[in-house]
Nucleic acid binder design. Structure first.
Lengths: 217, 217
DNA sequence: TTTGTATTGCGAATTTTTTCTCGATTTTAT
DNA sequence: ATAAAATCGAGAAAAAATTCGCAATACAAA
């Protein structure tokens, strides 16, 4: 365990790493062995230096003239994000979005393995969604503790989000991926990442609005 | 149409505005009339000055000692994001995520109104999802042109994303909200916002990983 | 009326992130 | 073997975003 693993990357960097990864998968499929920061930058419309700086965080060294070995770079990024070790996770809220999340087997590639889903709807409890059992939310804390689950995904309606989040914390969950559009109030040692679609929508809404305003001149 | 409407806000600001909005809704329900940057900052764990700077972009003026009228602030933020005028939109890809998006009537509150969905699956074509008809993707360009649709949501599998995005552009769509984990190559005048879940997942994955590393010392 | 308090809004300072510059290095071609 | 081309990596510079400091202002209480 090297010291560099303790070095925290800035959030913009963390957000770019998955984009590199997707590109690298595609390039690898294409039979490429090495990749340069120049190529990545051109494909992703970024600055080559920025790509190099980002990659530095993952502790891989490139070679002049050839760049980085794609295979090694993939492994390094995955290791940096801990996506090589799958993390068992609970998900609370089996509505539209929750079901969609469960349906994505893709998440397993990103280090996330759903082991159980929770809901309050008696119609859903006892069923399975893509082999994942749906259980009563009352069982969450005890089960989380016993299974040592540290990762929770929150896809419940906003009015229940705080309540369910507290249940997760009670079960010893340390990281909550929150899809509800609200601010959770939890102990400081709980990591909360808000993955709100409305944030992303705001960016594109405003850009389109600006374009319309400018375009009408 | 004031000059300030042309002033573009930085992306971090755009991402925070919806969070303010959600909080404001909650405060309004609670019967509050005014809100200070201090209060918003405390609730959302931000810096009060940052909140004020963000709000400045929406062209509303607060009053010393009392802050901002909640109602006015809501209207100002919504206007800034153009969420007071609903934008008609097409969505391509009626899989898990696409269906989930269609199921969210909530989006109408955020200025987004789905008028038609598109897919290649003959089983799905001709059906309706939450009153939205699912049509063959071939019909997209012509229909988009005739209905003057400017906003497209892309929830198709990554291998089809580029192809379908080009079809959208052919139909005159100017803003694409892309959920596929890939980089679209489109004309420069097309706005693309990548709303990839993996980006958000990367942030929380790394934070949890760091916590584990540090915690084990 | 006066005093105390909480707030906005603006410019300055700081911090963070991105971009630029360039020497050192490795491969390829001559 | 030598020259040419392409890249990395590191430090400096620039740009962007955040935070600080404070005067001006509005309200409430004395």
């Amino acid at each position: 365990m090297t010291a560099s693993q303790f070095k925290s990357a800035p959030e913009p960097t963390l957000r770019r790493l998955p984009r590199y990864l997707h590109l690298l998968f595609r390039l690898r499929e294409g039979g490429l062995e090495d990749v340069s920061s120049t190529l990545i930058a051109r494909e992703l419309k970024l600055d080559p230096t920025q790509v190099r700086k980002d990659i530095e965080y993952t502790d891989i060294v490139g070679r002049p003239k050839t760049g980085y070995p794609i295979e090694d770079l993939i492994i390094a990024i995955e290791a940096f994000l801990n996506w090589n070790n799958t993390e068992d996770a609970f998900i609370a809220g089996v509505g539209n979005l929750g079901s969609a999340m469960l349906g994505y087997q893709r998440f397993k590639k990103y280090g996330l393995n759903f082991v159980a889903a929770f809901d309050t709807d008696k119609q859903k409890i006892g069923t399975q969604i893509d082999t994942i059992p749906v259980l009563s939310i009352e069982k969450l804390p005890d089960l989380a503790n016993r299974m040592k689950i540290k990762f929770g995904v929150l896809t419940v309606p906003p009015q229940y989000a705080q309540f369910v989040a507290e249940i997760m914390v009670e079960g010893g969950i340390k990281a909550i991926w929150n899809f509800a559009p609200c601010q959770l109030k939890l102990p400081d040692d709980v990591i909360v990442e808000n993955a709100q679609l409305t944030q992303s929508l705001a960016v594109i809404s405003r850009k389109l609005h600006e374009k319309k305003i400018l375009g009408s001149d």
